[in-house]
Every structure is written in structure tokens, then in C-alpha cells.
Computed example of a mutant assay.
Amino acid sequence: MRAPGFWWRPDRTLLATLLSPLGAVSGARAAARLARPGFNPGVPVICVGNPTVGGAGKTPTALYLARHLIAAGRRPLFLTRGYGGAERGPLLVDPPAHFAAHVGDEALLLARAAPTVLARDRVAGARLAVEEGADVIVMDDGFQNPALAKALSLLVVDAAVGVGNGLCLPAGPLRAPLEPQLARAAAMLLIGEGEAGEALALRAADAGAAVLRGRLAPDARVASLLFGRRVLAFAGIGRPAKFFETLRVIGANPVAEHAFGDHQPLGPADAARLIGEAQAKDLLIVTTEKDAARLAGTEAGRLLSGLFDVLPVRLVPDADSARRLDALMAEALAGRPG
């Protein structure tokens, strides 16, 4: 699904205003759910979530945390809902055996870095994670799900768009009213730059949440190979425009840009159109890691095999934010939730 454009306009359109009563009802219900007590699985749970629907950098943030936990001698295990996959779990994700149609694209990316459990039932998933030897659980998404008690909750926000028009679904992109979310978050991580993010930083600080800053840095080796190249870029992520802009920043020339819905699977006809246009215009095809994971095991992936490059990105917090994030994790692991 592609988020409607009016969600991200700071001014409230007529449609947003008409839908706002529904948004108020859904927001009130979501806020009530946030206050419910959760199950304690016996190990710390670190949750990485978004206040809004759509991508902002949750998965790169979860991967960053897991890498630091592993370096510190911990045994993290990812817990994910497996959005876009048919499996309900709980199950341990096995990348050679599972494809995105089974477990979703995010689960496959996580499983490359650390053991990953997929579970729609988060309590059952946490129990399996502990059985698998986890001494800390990193949740990719699930901030608004009250099933588990969290030792540390982070809200990740794309600073360029913030929370859009500030309304709850379906009138806007918020999953719940912002203030109740901020009240349950130890920190807000702003990724990138923008006036919308700066306005949110003030609200987060007023609510007592730490304000952290970072950026998504493209892989230097791949970036050097794409420098000066004319490319056809395609992406089915929360904000494809952000990927296209990243290509321009590294010096690539995205002659053709194709935006698909978030987590949208590509069919053979889509692949054929991309290949045909790239060949006609002599363009190099490039996409995101999530899109590449979603192509594995599909007919579209078979058609595109060997014909596209992948540009990975990593979260890079600024130096002060990295230190503060380490301190928040240490407090959570020591049983002093942030």
C-alpha cells in the first residue's frame, strides 16, 4: 500500500478534515491499548518503532542495536511480526528456506544479522526467543502493541516528513496520538534533516524523551560503483523518494524512477517493464535491500537475476547520540528501563 499524499501535508486538507472524526476514534482506542501492562519474558525487550505508518528507518536502527549488543557479548534475537508474509509463527526464520512471501522482507534482512523469530503473537514469539537462547530481544516494530513489557522503547522518525498532518489513521499517518506515544518512549531518533523533525524534537524534549539524531549512510563501495552512472531506480518502501534522493547524493543519475507501494511484491510484468526500459535507455537497474529480499524466490526475481545492483544503507548516529543510545541500552540491560 502507498500512503496517500494528503497524510504528509502539514496543512490539513478537506479529506483529512472529513476523516478526522474516524481518526480521533481510532487514536483513542490505540492510546488506550498503549496503557495496558505487558508480559515480561524474563529478558530485556528493546523496541524500535514508528509513531506513524510507513518506513522511517526502523530496520536499520534495529540492526545497529543488534550489532552493538553482539559486540558487547550479548545474545540478541530479533522479534518481528513478519509484515507482508503469510506465516503467523512463532517460528525461527531460516533465510535459505524462507522467502518474503512466507516471512516478509524485513525478517529476511534481520535474520542475516542475528537469529530472528517471526510471531503475530508477540508473547509466544518472546517465549520462543528465550528458548532459542536470547538474553535480549530486539523488536522491529511493535511499539503500539502492548503484549510485551519493554525495557527500552525508541521512536524512529523521518525528519523530512515528521508526523505529517498530525492526525491518526485514516485521517493521517499517526498510529496513535503523538503525546501518549512520546510518554512511553525513552527516546526519539530523528533520521535525516528537516523542519518537520525539528518541530518534533521540541515536542519530544517537552515530554521528557531524549532526542537522538542520525542518518542512513549508503554503502561506500557500492556508492563508488554507482557514481556517475545513469540508472533506473525502483523501490517499494515507505518513502521511495528518499531512496531516489540518496542516489543523487552519491553522484548517480536516476534517469528513471519507479515507486511501488510499501512491501509491494513485483510481478513478472513489472520486471519485464523495468528490464525493457533499462535496456532501451542503456540504464543500470538499482534498488534497495528490502526490495532485493522481496524478489528472492519469485518469478520477477528470476527475470531480474544478475540485472540489478543493490544499494545497502546503515544507520549512523552522530557521536553524541551514539553515546546516549549506548547509555540507554546499558540502563535497560541492567534492569533500569529508560
Rank of each mutant, 00 (worst) to 15 (best):
residue 329 M to C: 14
residue 259 A to T: 02
residue 180 P to Q: 08
residue 109 L to T: 02
residue 3 A to W: 06
residue 110 L to A: 02
residue 123 V to P: 02
residue 116 T to D: 00
residue 55 G to C: 10
residue 30 A to K: 06
residue 134 A to F: 01
residue 288 T to K: 10
residue 55 G to T: 08
residue 243 F to T: 08
residue 179 E to A: 15
residue 31 A to C: 09
residue 338 G to W: 11
residue 95 P to E: 04
residue 287 T to W: 14
residue 39 F to Q: 02
residue 282 D to R: 15
residue 189 L to P: 12
residue 170 P to I: 10
residue 274 L to T: 08
residue 161 V to M: 01
residue 13 T to V: 06
residue 79 L to M: 02
residue 5 G to M: 03
residue 288 T to G: 15
residue 31 A to V: 11
residue 321 S to K: 09
residue 32 A to I: 01
residue 90 P to S: 01
residue 183 A to V: 10
residue 214 G to Q: 08
residue 124 A to V: 00
residue 288 T to F: 12
residue 275 I to K: 14
residue 163 V to N: 11
residue 231 V to E: 02
residue 46 I to Y: 05
residue 21 P to V: 06
residue 30 A to H: 05
residue 281 K to D: 11
residue 333 L to W: 02
residue 147 A to I: 01
residue 248 R to W: 00
residue 248 R to V: 04
residue 337 P to M: 08
residue 219 D to R: 13
residue 220 A to G: 14
residue 306 G to P: 05
residue 25 V to M: 08
residue 255 V to P: 10
residue 280 A to L: 11
residue 254 P to A: 06
residue 168 C to R: 08
residue 202 L to Y: 14
residue 190 L to V: 13
residue 80 T to Y: 01
residue 292 A to N: 15
residue 109 L to F: 08
residue 103 V to G: 00
residue 326 D to T: 15
residue 24 A to C: 07
residue 264 Q to G: 09
residue 324 R to Q: 15
residue 226 L to Q: 12
residue 266 L to V: 11
residue 159 A to N: 03
residue 183 A to L: 14
residue 61 T to E: 09
residue 197 G to R: 06
residue 178 L to H: 11
residue 260 F to K: 06
residue 4 P to H: 04
residue 213 R to M: 07
residue 127 R to P: 00
residue 196 A to I: 10
residue 325 L to D: 09
residue 160 A to Y: 05
residue 174 L to F: 09
residue 313 V to N: 06
residue 193 E to I: 05
residue 146 P to C: 04
